[in-house]
């Protein structure tokens, strides 16, 4: 469905994506990466907004840039909020459907139907400026799916939404992904995981990992985990742990923190518990790299052939 072969996109001297080769088949895919990783450039290449500086992009077997046949099968929901404030949700969606080449009558019927599908039927005739962010996101989604594309591309669809709106939108997108293909760009792992999507992880314009969530987890598990311990005497704890084979690396962090890299977190937890029994005041023991940045750092380490 989507194939990128050695694709590089340059903006002058700035690299958007760097030598990316990936093939994404039909189904749901998550494009994961921190802000500035190159996700929007990747999406821009796939949705025909941008042309690669080097390499080849194919969507449905053809380059998407300037290709009406490909664009007709694409639905795109950008990260930016709808800035049209005076138009109603119905007018906006109808406009987008008509832009896809449908007649006015057909576009009106599709717009009404899709707004109902996304739960905006009652607010359809209200100006977009009077809708909540969550409602505008739904209107944006309606605009992207009303022409029934084969592939829906969403760029940061859940940004700025409250938990309820986020939950509702995840449900809508999941329903969509049951019958058609989906590519979601996000910097939040749990959002992509909630969509049961395969993952492609991008960082610094490079694709650092791709596969099912299980495969990605397997990759991660092969690397040492970092555990952060907060206690009253981190130097003492560091001395105690340094000699143990379970401890791959150790560093002090601030006045009360010590970060331990290990392949056996249970052993480290037991050692810390022993130290606590011996009088060390331990106030916290948490995985240090649960954040997405931690995950990315470890995947980059794997990509470069070095442990973090």
């Amino acid at each position: 469905m989507i194939r990128l072969s050695h694709v590089t996109k340059l903006y002058g001297t700035v690299i958007g994506v760097n030598d990316v080769t990936v093939e994404l088949g039909a189904g749901a895919h998550g494009l994961l990466g921190p802000n500035g990783a190159g996700k929007t450039t990747f999406i821009g290449l796939v949705t025909g907004q941008l042309r690669p500086s080097m390499g080849r992009v194919e969507v449905f077997g053809a380059p998407p840039f300037g290709n009406d046949r490909v664009l007709r099968r694409l639905g795109f929901c950008p990260a930016s909020d709808i800035t049209e404030r005076r138009a109603t949700a119905l007018e906006w969606v109808r406009y987008l459907v008509r832009l896809s080449g449908f007649t006015a009558a057909d576009a009106a019927a599709r717009a009404e139907r899709t707004l109902e599908q996304v739960g905006l039927d009652e607010a359809a005739r209200r100006p977009l400026g009077t809708l909540s962010k969550g409602m505008r996101q739904r209107a944006k989604l309606a605009g992207a799916i009303a022409h029934e594309p084969d592939l829906l591309v969403l760029d940061e669809p859940f940004d700025g939404l409250d938990p309820v709106a986020r939950h509702d939108l995840v449900g809508l997108v999941r329903t969509w992904a049951r019958s058609r293909s989906l590519l979601v760009a996000s910097h939040l792992l749990h959002e992509v995981e909630a969509l049961h999507a395969d993952l492609a992880v991008i960082l610094g314009g490079r694709l650092v990992a791709s596969g099912s969530p299980g495969e990605i987890r397997h990759l991660i598990d092969a690397l040492p985990t970092e555990i952060r311990v907060t206690c009253d005497d981190p130097r003492r704890l560091a001395r105690q742990l340094a000699g143990d084979s379970a401890c791959v690396g150790i560093r002090l962090e601030g006045e009360q923190g010590v970060v331990i890299a290990t392949r056996a977190p249970e052993t480290i937890a037991a050692l810390v518990a022993t130290a606590a029994e011996e009088g060390l005041a331990v106030s916290a023991l948490v995985p240090a790299d649960r954040s997405l940045e931690g995950l990315f750092a470890r995947l980059v380490g794997l990509h470069r052939g070095v442990a973090p």
Binding site: T47, Q49, L71, R72, S80, T83, L99, G101
Partner: peptide
């Protein structure tokens, strides 16, 4: 400026239109 360019550019014939 309005951020609507992406909606136009990703539609078939959107730029012509």
């Amino acid at each position: 400026e309005r951020g609507t360019w992406v909606h136009v550019a990703t539609r078939p014939g959107g730029r012509r239109a």
